[in-house]
Design a protein around this nucleic acid. Structure first.
Length: 362
DNA sequence: AGCCTACCTGGGTC
DNA sequence: AGACCCAGGTAGG
């Protein structure tokens, strides 16, 4: 099997919209892009997941994928080590291991095709039938009006380590800057996977790479601002709590207990804790309440006429409960769809404003 | 318990 | 040109 050959995974467009699922603010590692030799006209996405560099695109009935590069030593791969959902049929190529070839020249995949498919099924949560979910959630009028445009947005099942540190970076920030900070973490502390057209692709570092006291200053020099301290401290605290075993434990707790455990870490408050619960610890009833969701909640989910001065823990819980009441056990997924819809509308609104202003200037 | 303020940085507005 | 505002918040008072 060759890296250059596109593989197919059957998947209709009503079950997956790649664009918003990958770039709508859940993960910060997917970029629209292609290789110079690519000669298709549709959009493709390149990014790192599960210690592999992937390229994705989509046809009417299939998800197309290639693995452009991967870490040879993937013992730190969370899908293997932390989740242990997948048994790995590693392809051992004795000839290759004797020869000292760089990863870049290696055109052969390290694992069986089943392995990569299993990764994708887990990552995109293909066990969830999304059309059925949308039908159920559309019983609420707000979801029904929003979902026409924002179809088939999937909640990704991400690596908890990457997810946790990425969302520490997310506070008080735009997606574009969050992405650049996450890239810096990978570039400076993560193992390099391969080079493609002069661009180096790195896996996300393990938390133990971020523990050293000097990391805070290094990150400040890289313009992380006050998040630098949170990252370094959280890494130490995770280690003290048991590292990867701790992530496993938190995943197995009830949602409420997992949330309580996460907020004990420096730099993780209620909102980021819910992001982690929802996106990488399998607690799909978690509702991250940020400024956008607060707005949605007051407009559509809370009793009207209430004056809101600030976000208190009590109000935070009320909003989460209101969404859980309406959307049930996968309410965090429904909330993600609404959030993406609101985010895109917010952006469009801004660009319209700007367009109008430019016109006025003329 | 609720409310306030400081916190880094980069991009946009006026 | 140079304040000022804001962005998927959190800690500490």
């Amino acid at each position: 099997m060759n890296r250059k050959i596109w593989q197919k995974l059957k998947c209709s467009q009503s079950e997956l919209q790649l664009k918003v699922s990958l770039t709508g603010g859940q993960s910060f590692r997917w970029k629209i892009g292609s290789l110079p030799e690519d000669n298709f006209i549709d959009e493709s996405y390149i990014g790192v997941m599960g210690n592999c560099v992937w390229q994705f695109r989509q046809t009417e009935n299939d998800l197309l994928y290639r693995v452009l590069g991967e870490l040879k030593n993937d013992s730190s791969n969370y899908y293997n080590q932390v989740r242990m959902k997948i048994s790995i049929p590693t392809v051992v190529d004795k000839k290759k291991s004797k020869k000292k070839t760089s990863v870049m020249d290696d055109t052969k995949l390290f694992h069986s095709l089943d392995y990569y498919e299993s990764l994708l099924r887990a990552y995109f949560r293909f066990d969830v039938n999304l059309s059925e979910c949308y039908a159920e959630w559309s019983k609420h009028p707000h979801f029904k009006t929003e979902s026409d445009k924002f179809y088939a947005i999937r909640v990704l099942d991400q690596d908890p380590v990457e997810n946790l540190f990425s969302f520490i970076c997310s506070q008080n920030n735009h997606i574009s800057r969050i992405s650049s900070l996450v890239e810096k973490l990978c570039k400076n502390y993560g193992p390099k996977i391969c080079d493609l057209n002069g661009v180096a692709y790195h896996a996300f570092p393990n938390f133990d790479e971020l523990m050293d006291a000097k990391v805070e200053q290094e990150l400040r020099n890289e313009s992380f601002g006050y998040r630098a301290k949170f990252i370094q401290r959280a890494a130490v605290e995770i280690n003290d709590k048991g590292g990867l075993d701790w992530f496993q434990k938190v995943q197995n707790m009830s949602y409420k207990d997992a949330h309580a455990e996460l907020v004990t870490l420096t730099g993780i408050g209620p909102k980021v804790a819910d992001c982690i619960c929802l996106m990488s610890l399998n607690h799909l009833e978690a509702i991250p309440v940020d400024t956008h969701v607060l707005k949605l909640a007051t407009e559509h989910y809370l009793p009207k006429g209430r004056e809101i001065k600030s976000m208190t823990p009590k109000l935070y819980n009320e909003i989460g409960d209101a969404f859980r009441q309406v959307y049930g056990p996968l309410s965090g997924w429904a909330q993600t769809v609404l959030f993406c819809a609101d985010l895109v509308k917010f952006k469009e609104g801004k660009s319209k404003e700007n367009g109008a202003k430019k016109k006025r200037k003329k």
